[in-house]
Design a protein around this nucleic acid. Sequence first.
DNA 1: TTGCGTGCAAAGGTTTTGCATGGCA
DNA 2: TGCCATGCAAAACCTTTGCACGCAA
Lengths: 141, 141
Amino acid sequence: MARTQYRTKQQDLILAYLRTIPSKHFTAEDLKEHFESKQIKLGAATIYRQLDKLVSEGKLQKYLIDEHSATCFEYIEEQCNPLEQHFHLKCEVCGALIHLACDELNDIKTHLEKEHGFILNPFKTVFYGTCPKCAQNKKAE
Amino acid sequence: MARTQYRTKQQDLILAYLRTIPSKHFTAEDLKEHFESKQIKLGAATIYRQLDKLVSEGKLQKYLIDEHSATCFEYIEEQCNPLEQHFHLKCEVCGALIHLACDELNDIKTHLEKEHGFILNPFKTVFYGTCPKCAQNKKAE
DNA sequence: TTGCGTGCAAAGGTTTTGCATGGCA
DNA sequence: TGCCATGCAAAACCTTTGCACGCAA
């Protein structure tokens, strides 16, 4: 039996804000600070519970960037086109997080699926490595 | 000025054990338990400090699998052949961690490097998605 | 009125840090 | 002997949980 869900002020506030930052990554703490700066008080528990709810509804993707830092989230726009999915590249040197939309990378997805039966979740997957800028600096050394 | 490093019993114990489990992933807690089962007592701080040291020396790869679970490590064999590098596939449904050695996936690395100037670290990168078994189960539903 | 969502505080688990002690060179 | 590494305990950090209260339906 499905449990009735209430719609609350806090829910609306969070979702409204998320819609203004599509494809940006943020942490639970970021959200808390955002609302604090607007004199709106949201309990940490509420934030975590709402974020979990949005994740299970597929409106939010949850992923890890670094060890020992908070979990990151990213709002997935409702009208999101699967073809416009992007991958995350994380530079291990400077910490930059790069959003990469590239058709050829979709080939990876297809390959994993056809050859290995593995269905890739591009939202959650993070590629670690060295970004162009830092690679350049290394070479220059 | 480089600071002198001492070689300790604990260091040797850890490294010796790691050499017996190449390409297996483990947590700091796993290590602690392994030594406890042999009546060897290692402080948690020592383990974390040694692991960090090995990571910075490139002998160990550190990566995250799940939020809210401990950081995983994997020993990289000294004679490791770059061509034998494998990728990690993590099933979001059943939690299985799959090691995948696949030449075609090396193409990803090449592609990211040539087209985007991004040097991929295959040890750290984890592909999230649904494994063949779970994909099958979903279909059967 | 019913019962879900919130907020607070406490608890949980992992990792880091301070400090006195032990042990390598 | 000098000083790095260890071990213990305490702290830090992020996140979850218990419980009473508030609020949506």
